[in-house]
Design a binder for these strands. Structure first.
Lengths: 191, 191, 191, 191
DNA sequence: GATGAATGAGACTTCATTCAT
DNA sequence: TATGAATGAAGTCTCATTCAT
């Protein structure tokens, strides 16, 4: 009984979530409105408030659902890969792989973060500028593997480059292999 | 018609433009509204429609005004610097210099581009992914100086890295010298 | 039907009633909502509609429960006290005593009465301006004990004065003894 | 030119204000909504926000407009009447007179004060429990004219009694003359 | 040029109530 | 008896835009 109920709930919950994600992909997070979502799911607008506390909650859930994939992979990498350089390489690979599988995810994440008065607290986000990865970069610098540069410079460079590469995939422009991009990061743009 | 514009008019025009830019810097482009602009300039809302066709037009003008500085410098570089590598270096330097002088400008530009239904047509914009610079990169690839990668990958990498570096300046975090960043681009992140 | 009500039911019924009363005390009757009540009792909103026909019914029950204490005492007084003046004095004393014991009760009663479209029909309410007490006042006038004034003037004067005195208790301001207030009513404010 | 403009403004401003007051009289302040007001004035709802900053502002303006009459008279009394007892008497007379002229005003004032989260700051209100009148009562106590009771008890007693008397006027019930009520206050209800 | 006035649309949210289970 | 789901109405507020003066 309960399991059937739950399934029903989850279906609607996910319908709403997915409709919202679609809208963000199409029109941008800034224009997301409960009205639009409701229209797309074909429910009354107030119905959304049964599944989500409010609009911010909806955005938070979208954010969580989009970053959970990354989080899992990052966690694995930090646990399993051996050397620091290996870990960094695997981090880049994870970002690349997901960006190809789900080319919109990076955009959705970025968009939600950049909403004015974003519901995402930049400090406790487990994502790109968050502790474990920043720590990894710092370790790379300490071990004299990486140049001594503010870690967020590295993360921005890697994140945005891979993101643009994923966008090229979508737009059917030339896009680069993982090895190409990794080479770019590690050895620079000069041939 | 435009040439007959009186000084008085121009002053008001720029007051509006600057107020709008300030608002974007402070609160983000997505929250820009004619109401807010009018309040800040202390004019009536409808007055804005005398100087700008509509809100989109206002955004376009802001965009133009923000990129004009870059355009001038890029134009100079393309005319004057000697080798392709020199030109690329000078392009990066120009980006870096302006990012330090006016750390918000890159943000404003990015923000306007990312507005949903942005009035900026990505394709015919004279900016970073636009013809002359893209052509420069292509030339670099053709001359076997640069690795063969979709040029917009390079431009995104450079633009966003420099932008983050400028943000670090503003936030009083560690930021990097031009030489450091140039080295990062040309020779990669490995030490 | 009502008599067959199980104990369990009654408990829930009173939980709802009391939660609603608490909310009125804290936030005012105008803000009472089934949503709030349900949240406080930790039941589902729709559950309320099993115990109460609708919101108006809930309010009516609250009203009844709040005035029942008064009604009992008034009934006693009208039966037992001897002279008309004694009865009036005892009526005032009852009001005073309850106001001290339960300083919120008068507020709750007033609030419900003043709700727009109040479910309480002012005319057939058994309360303060209702028949038995009004009759008592009328008798006092007829017996030439009280000045000849519309009885509801007396009742308002007494009710609101005692109510404010109770509020003073709650707010830890100076408040007056029963004798002081009685003196005020009977002999006026002049010393 | 300007004077004509102003007149136009004021007309609409007052139309809105009066419509709102009517609604409060009819349905109570708790149900006042900008929607209702707009409907009554036959304007679009957003138009109200040209004349009033927000709903609270509307309520504040109503409050001010309703108490201004009282304020003027109170001010006069405090300036002009001679003895403390005279001043108190004149205060009561002012309350009485206005209550007869404008029997709703006291209700409107009370209602706005009792709205949950009322926009009226109880402490700096120039009205009944406010400084000058409370001070007058205190003076009366100090001069041994009045019994020593928390002044707000007196004010409540007087205010509510007169208010009920005004309500009786409206409802075409028996109502009392000023002398009768004054006598009630000064010498009590006993004959 | 400039402004005040006006508006319709749309945004977020809460609520009372009903219904199937 | 109890609940989750659903909804339509209502409420507050902001906004882009137009128009008469």
């Amino acid at each position: 009984m309960i399991s059937i109920m739950k399934k029903k709930d989850n279906e609607k919950y996910e319908k709403i979530l997915n409709a919202a994600i679609e809208i963000i992909k199409e029109d941008g997070a800034a224009t997301l409105s409960t009205t639009k979502v409701a229209k797309r799911v074909q429910i009354s607008q107030s119905n959304i408030y049964i599944y989500f506390k409010n609009k911010d909650d909806l955005l938070k859930q979208i954010y969580q659902s989009e970053i959970s994939d990354y989080q899992l992979r990052f966690h694995d990498i930090l646990e399993n890969s051996h050397s620091t350089l290996e870990k960094i390489t695997e981090y880049i690979r994870a970002l690349y792989d997901i960006s190809i599988e789900n080319p919109d995810s990076m955009d959705v994440i970025e968009q939600i973060k950049q909403i004015p008065d974003s519901p995402i607290d930049m400090n406790d986000v487990v994502g790109f500028e968050s502790n474990p990865i920043v720590d990894l970069i710092k370790k790379g610098i300490a071990e004299n593997i990486l140049k001594d540069v503010n870690p967020n410079i590295y993360l921005t460079m890697i994140f945005n480059t891979i993101r643009m590469n994923a966008a090229n995939t979508k737009n059917k422009q030339n896009f680069s292999s993982f090895d190409t991009l990794l080479d770019l990061f590690l050895h620079g743009i000069l041939k």
